[in-house]
Design a protein around this nucleic acid. Structure first.
Lengths: 215, 215
DNA sequence: TATTCTGCAGAACGTCCGTTCTGATTCCTC
DNA sequence: GAGGAATCAGAACGGACGTTCTGCAGAATA
């Protein structure tokens, strides 16, 4: 890719800036005005060079039809926006998602990267982990856990559960065994919890965990 | 948001389709042609309704200045693309990033969500965790750890280190104490490792951890 | 039935805007 | 200093394009 003149750099910068504000491209005369150029032919001349060198693409005779090559949509990724409904901590009830939460409630939100997004991004919500009680699930203070809201889990799935008798919130692998539920820590060295099925409220399946490590 | 007539739905669909191909919007006459409408005034009429109902936004007197509200860029997020260089496991040397890796080497890549992206997204790379030896850092098999490549760490930072004497890769908090380095597990219940500084190769600082939990 | 509203057709107006032509200025090369 | 390429200025042309005005037909309303 050949080097670029300062005039062309100036125009390219303006194109980017203009496009982020509005979502369409400036006309040639707008470029002329913004870059302090005294003729539209100069703008056309430099746009022609920018296109020859592969920086932009133009469609002849069409207004505002400039595209910045390899930049328009390539670096942008469609992500799922997950509402962060609150915190999950050992002794506190798990926040329950209301219908409003998914439809742009006033919650904080979190962008889940595509690699971690399940096929079906509906009914997802996130909780911020408070404290160190989820260590047996390899989850620690400050982590974000992404959950799919559901009331019934299948065996082996990791769930966020609330135990009303013990007044405890926990993240465990779920196994229904007759009348009882066995809750297995992800860390196989730690002991399972076995409680009557009626004493377990499943709040959702764990879909992903993410953690930002402090500097 | 009021209901939408079939004509308006047709136009809206065409706008989306047109915009995904090119990156600009159609002119009124192009909409007219594509939707089989016999007058530009009809297009204008329906666009006016679409704008009144909040589906699109138009800028008067400007060609192709239609924006689809809440859809154009809102769901798109600029993310940092991190190359996944390989795996980190207890007994295997840590893959070293080459210069080529950052500049679109043929590695798998991973999109880091903006919430987890540090101010400076340079020199970042990712490793896939193999095995269960990093449990004391709350990291387990299959996790992705994001690292910033550096040879020297500051006290308290979590680093990926290779211990040549022990032939061991590990994730620990780093503390330089005179001639020795103390490597602290994130889990405070586990014992630290203390080794001569010359026996520690720091490969990078841990920036983020993410995990997709199996269904 | 009279009235209003909605959706559409056709045409014309005026401006927006890409394009092009001519010529000047600057800068390098030989 | 002559020749040539690169860059720019000014103006004009013509098509692209948004806008508007008039009118018509059917549905809804009263």
């Amino acid at each position: 890719m050949p080097a670029i003149s300062s005039r062309q750099q100036q125009i390219l910068d303006f194109l980017r800036e203009y496009h982020t504000d509005r979502s369409y491209m400036p006309s040639i005369r707008e470029i002329q005005l913004a870059c302090g150029i005294s003729s539209t032919s100069v703008v056309d001349y430099n746009l022609r060079l920018l296109e020859r060198d592969g920086y932009i693409h133009r469609s002849p005779d069409i207004s505002r039809a400039i595209e910045i090559v390899g930049e328009s949509e390539a670096d942008l990724v469609e992500v799922a926006r997950i509402p962060v409904l609150g915190a999950i901590a050992a002794g506190e009830p798990i926040p329950v998602p209301e219908a409003a939460a998914y439809a742009g409630g006033d919650h904080e939100s979190f962008a889940l990267p595509p690699e971690l997004t399940p096929r079906d991004p509906d009914n997802l919500y996130a909780l911020r982990v408070k404290g160190y009680s989820m260590i047996d699930a390899f989850v620690t203070d400050g982590d974000i856990v992404v959950l799919r809201h559901t009331r019934d889990a299948h065996n082996g799935e990791m769930v966020a559960a609330w135990l009303p008798m013990q007044e405890e919130a926990t993240l465990k692998h779920f196994y229904l065994e007759g009348e009882n539920v066995r809750l297995m820590p992800a860390n196989p060295n730690m002991a399972p919890i076995i409680v009557p099925a009626s004493d377990v409220q499943v709040h959702g399946k764990v879909v992903a965990v993410m953690r930002r490590v402090a500097a």
